[in-house]
């Protein structure tokens, strides 16, 4: 019995130590979560940056914070002005707004395209909070201008807390039929000849694995019907003319001092062409996608919406 009591006392002491550590750590870390920040002001924005917005989990500001997944935001306002000039935007503030509304549009070199849209689930910052964060970001190497920030109000989507009406195809379709068309190798033009999905297909165009989780139906429909409107970075078409007058259009596979490799469509079959620098007369990026622009003529309406439904189910 005595040994059992000793064991009980020992156990309670260890658990007590654990609780003490938890209380001590709470004292160290604090309980600040950005809650209660209201209004559009740099102070509210700072609270949100380090709290509800979860910005600090990827960005540090100089010696405050230590995250390295995203760029250091020290001096951001000044840097944003330079970036705005480079990208043809009106102001540094516009650059910051665009970076928040559509994070993939301005990915800083050396960093991955991982920033979520903060107004979407799961973060779901409302418009006022995003405006507050913008005013705070203005103070990092600049002066806050709440009026200027407020002008971008309409550009910032409102966080959706209510359920959005689901997308329904205009005709009844079966995603399984869409899947069959996607991988149908007997057709002249097949999606899987250029796109990988769940490890199947060829890696000419962007990998579509999990595309349903990150893209809207509208984006997918437009990407199929008008592939040149939005070309995913890294998949732009390259025009190349050799010294002997031969012209090629294709995807740039690699480029270094010794050679340039293009992936060229040869009657539906993708082939790699290697060019040496001394045989290239001209080379420039095109704003036309290599993806066929006449897919609407090649697919029936049912097949088309079947593919869209199938892609949307890929989460």
């Amino acid at each position: 019995m005595r040994s059992f009591l000793n064991a009980v006392v020992f156990t309670v002491a260890v658990v007590g130590f654990f609780i003490y550590v938890c209380m001590y750590v709470t004292g160290l870390s604090g309980g600040g979560g950005g809650g209660g920040a209201t209004g559009v002001s740099p102070e509210a924005g700072e609270k949100i940056f380090w709290g509800d917005g979860q910005c600090h989990t990827c960005h540090r500001i100089g010696t405050s914070g230590s995250a390295t997944r995203g760029p250091d935001q020290e001096g951001l306002a000044a840097r944003a002005e330079e970036r705005a000039k480079e990208t043809g935007l009106g102001s540094g503030l516009e650059y910051m707004v665009e970076s928040i509304v559509n994070p993939s549009s301005h990915v800083v070199e050396g960093f991955d395209d991982i920033m979520p849209k903060v107004y979407d689930p799961p973060i779901m910052l409302d418009r006022e909070k995003i405006l507050a964060v913008l005013t705070y970001l203005q103070t990092l190497g600049g002066e806050p201008d709440i009026d200027a920030v407020a002008k971008f109000k309409d550009k910032i989507p409102e966080a959706s807390k209510t359920k959005v009406v689901p997308w329904v195809p205009p005709i009844e379709v079966d995603p399984k039929e869409g899947e069959a068309v996607f991988f149908d190798e007997t057709r002249d033009v097949t999606c899987s000849k250029c796109h990988v999905l769940n490890g199947k297909g060829s890696k000419v165009g962007p990998d579509l694995t999990g595309i349903g989780a990150v893209q809207t139906p509208q984006y997918l429909i437009e990407s199929v019907l008008k592939p040149s409107d939005v070309i995913v970075k890294g998949f732009e078409t390259m025009y190349l003319m050799t010294n002997d007058g031969m012209a090629y259009n294709g995807l740039l596979v690699s480029q270094d001092e010794e050679e340039v490799v293009l992936m060229v469509d040869e009657d539906g079959v993708m082939a790699e062409y290697v060019f040496y620098p001394d045989e290239i007369a001209q080379m420039q990026k095109q704003d036309v996608s290599i993806m066929p622009g006449n897919l609407s003529e090649m697919l029936t309406t049912k097949e088309f919406y079947g593919i869209i439904s199938f892609l949307l189910s890929q989460k």
């Binding site: 658990v15 007590g16 654990f18 609780i19 550590v21 938890c22 209380m23 709470t26 870390s29 309980g31």
Partner: peptide
């Protein structure tokens, strides 16, 4: 909070 968690887990 971590303290609340500590008490509950304890």
């Amino acid at each position: 909070s971590i303290a609340y968690m500590g008490w509950t887990v304890g």
